[in-house]
Amino acid sequence: MVGPMSVFRSKAFLLAASSSVLLAGAGLAQEAHEGGGESHSAFPPFDPATFGSTLFWLLITFVTLYWLMSRVALPRVGGIIEHRNAAIATDLEKADVMQKKAEEAGNAYTAALAKAKANAVAIGQQAKDAASAAATERRKAVEADVATKIATAEQQIAAMKASAMTNVSTIATEAAAAIVERLTGVAPSEADVRKAVSDTLAG
């Protein structure tokens, strides 16, 4: 990029220089011809007649510029940049602290969550234990109740059975007495009949 550019530049410069000599000559000749009064013999950028005024105004403008820059602009811009860098640093620091806080909060949350979970499990377990204990108790009570009822029922059955058996022996005795009386025509004594029946029933 630099190579072709500088070639181009030097070509342009040569062209400019050679052309300018011709054109300057023409221009100056014409101006001298028309202007007459003023002398423009010197090449303007080298004309010492203008040096005084140029230097004077350069001094004024440059001193003003230097004063403005060194007293106002540069301290201000430097201050702005410094202030910004400080603000960025403080903000980053703050963000760091905040992030740590957030992390702590996150950790605390996780811990609280774990604790709550453990609590929940414990409470659940307790409830389960209590419920199962209650259920066992009730089952036992019901079982006891049922056992009592069964026992009562069995007693009743036994009583009924006994009473029924008593009835059976009474009927059997009467029937046996009746059968013996019909067959033999003699009424057997009731005690004999009862004895015979109970012997038979007993096996």
């Binding site: 203008t50 005024s53 140029t54 105004w57 403008t61 403005l68």
Partner: peptide
């Protein structure tokens, strides 16, 4: 020390720089 076209452009430059920087 006449105020010339050269001086005018020095002042314009100064004004432009002051405008941006101040």
């Amino acid at each position: 020390i006449s105020f010339t076209n050269s001086a005018l452009f020095m002042v314009i430059s100064l004004a432009l720089i002051a405008f941006v920087m101040v």
